[in-house]
Design a protein around this nucleic acid. Structure first.
Length: 492
RNA sequence: GGGCCCGUAGCUCAGCCCGGUAGAGCAGGCGGCUCUUAACCGCAAGAUCAGGGGUUCGAAUCCCCUCGGGCCCGCCA
């Protein structure tokens, strides 16, 4: 008997023993031939209150949410993946022995099966008028409070199973997330993109500037890092001739957490040979529209989700990075400023990034300060200064710019796309420049990627999207932890 | 790293300002009830007030530290 057992758990555990003593297995193996609650609801349609459906009995199974006893009658609410159905329990139909046994052993939170006839109660509630009830798994620990559910945020995150079993809204959110991922795959598959899986364990994590998680291979006796982006392996596949590829998977960044940053997050990256960022924008807008349609179907009763769906429906606002920054900040001639002048402006805007940072970093800080907070509606920001973006191709007509777009919503970034840089010598030069500005040797650059480019990467466009943030935006969820089933929490 | 807020029974919450030895609802126990749906009625039970230290005759309440969490700011091309 566990030493940390509460009196409630002791009581419930004693029911397990008494069930066994009566020859009733509290944890049986299977409950065959069950139908879902929604199927019973269908069979109850059109039945008058106080009547039963003709035909054979049905079997239902799920979690007992509530039990209302009335002496020789009782009502129970059974919840399964499809919804909720009431059980109507009467001693005259079950027999006194079975009825009394049920009342002795059943508690809210138990997993139970029932067999009986679809029926509508006198008060009009669709039900299963049960002939028998079977314990399928006795719950020793009590469920969260039946009306308010689990409110404690920490408990919801640390013990997601309790959140899910208590909250149909939480289940609906994660069901929606799964369907959105499915929609992404269907959309890209239909556009002849190939889903691939690249490595998560790498000698050097690259493709972004974040601090990686570090680990070690015993067999190789080699230090390894967890990937921080998917970009460079996927571009290697373009060199290899796969032409249209995407990956949907986790990246890891060893940095602070907040409402839009998780150390472990899901990314979508897609690369498309012989196409440019205009093509990618059309593909992205099509994808967003499809995702919005799915959310409208999946969460019709959620006003924040319906608002999110509206925002993700084309057409979208577009602003030019430089024009918008100059307009919002009142600063003109930004691209002609010296690095020192840009640093001064960034300092004036409150940034504390290191002095040795590249001019691109200062421009990003200025944009974050003056523009991002205003990007509350879904907006495409285009044609960034070349200095901000080491992996993008220079703009074909705007000097000192690259062909790039970023999507923002509610002040945070959703994704980022370029016409990809495929000139190996220019790529190598930009990597070296970046390294010099960071002044830290742990960001060794991916030399093999440059070697791959020397073999020729087709002209191409690529995109990276923060999937968790897309789910947040589409469902109107304010915190990234709420859209991740098991977010990282401090061990205790 | 800085600021603000939170932690009381298995769960949801009062009590804290203004110090006097912890209160309710749900869940659980016992009893009643054959149409309820946050069922209802009666009885009894359930709490190292996150942890540690201090002030005080007396601390859930005031002060300090620690732990955990939330929000905001900073940092994170």
């Amino acid at each position: 008997m566990p030493v940390d057992e509460t009196p409630l758990e002791h009581e419930r555990r004693s029911k397990v023993e008494r069930l066994r003593a009566e020859g009733r297995e509290p944890y049986p193996w299977v409950f065959p031939d069950r139908v879902l609650a929604e199927e019973v609801l269908r069979r109850c349609e059109g039945l008058a209150p106080g009547t039963e459906a003709a035909g054979p009995p049905v079997r239902v199974a799920g979690r007992l949410k509530a039990l209302r006893l009335h002496g020789r009658t009782a009502f129970a609410d059974l919840e399964d993946v499809s919804g909720s159905i009431q059980l109507l329990l009467r001693s005259d139909t079950m027999g006194d022995g079975e009825f009394d046994a049920g009342m002795r052993y059943l508690d809210p939170g138990d997993l139970v099966g029932a067999e009986g006839v679809p029926a509508v109660s006198k008060r009009g509630e669709p039900s299963v008028h049960a002939r028998s009830v079977t314990m399928l798994a006795k719950a020793i620990a009590p469920p969260p409070e039946k009306f308010h559910g689990l409110q404690d945020v920490e408990e919801r995150l640390r013990r997601r199973y309790l959140d899910l079993l208590a909250s149909p809204e939480s289940r609906a959110l994660f069901r929606t997330r799964a369907h959105l991922l499915r929609e992404v795959r269907q959309y890209l598959d239909a556009s002849d993109f190939l889903e691939v899986e690249t490595a998560t364990l790498l000698p050097v994590a690259s493709g972004a500037a974040a601090t990686p998680f570090e680990t070690h291979s015993r067999y190789l006796d080699a230090d390894l890092q967890l990937r921080i982006a998917l970009e460079l392996p996927l571009k290697r596949l373009l060199v290899g001739g796969l032409e249209r590829v995407y990956e949907l998977g986790k990246s890891f960044r060893n940095e602070d957490m907040d409402t839009t940053h998780s150390p472990e997050f899901t990314e979508l990256e897609a690369y498309w040979a012989y196409a440019d960022y205009h093509d990618m924008r059309r593909l992205t807008e099509g994808l967003f529209g499809r995702l919005a349609d799915r959310v409208r179907e999946l969460l019709p009763d959620s006003p924040p989700a319906q608002e999110g769906a509206k925002e993700f429906t084309p057409p979208f606002a577009t602003v030019d990075f430089v024009e918008e920054l100059e307009r919002r900040s009142g600063i003109s001639g930004l691209l002609a400023k010296s690095p020192e002048e840009l640093r001064g402006l960034a300092r004036a805007a409150g940034s504390t990034v290191p002095d040795r940072s590249t001019p691109g970093v200062f421009l990003d800080k200025l944009f974050e300060h003056y523009v991002e907070p205003h990007l509350q509606h879904l907006t495409f920001v285009v044609d960034h200064p070349a200095a901000t973006t080491p992996l993008a191709k220079r703009h074909r007509s705007k000097p000192d710019r690259v062909e790039r777009f970023e999507m923002f919503y509610r002040g945070f970034e959703l994704g980022n796309a370029y016409t990809e840089l495929n000139d190996p010598d220019e790529q190598e030069a930009r990597f070296r420049e970046q390294l010099a500005s960071q002044g830290e040797d742990r960001y060794a650059y991916d030399a093999d990627f440059v070697r791959a480019l020397r073999h020729g990467m087709p002209p191409a466009t690529g995109i990276g999207i923060g999937v968790d943030r897309i789910v947040m935006g589409l469902t109107g969820t304010p915190s990234i932890k709420e859209v991740i089933l098991f977010p990282l929490v401090r061990p205790r």
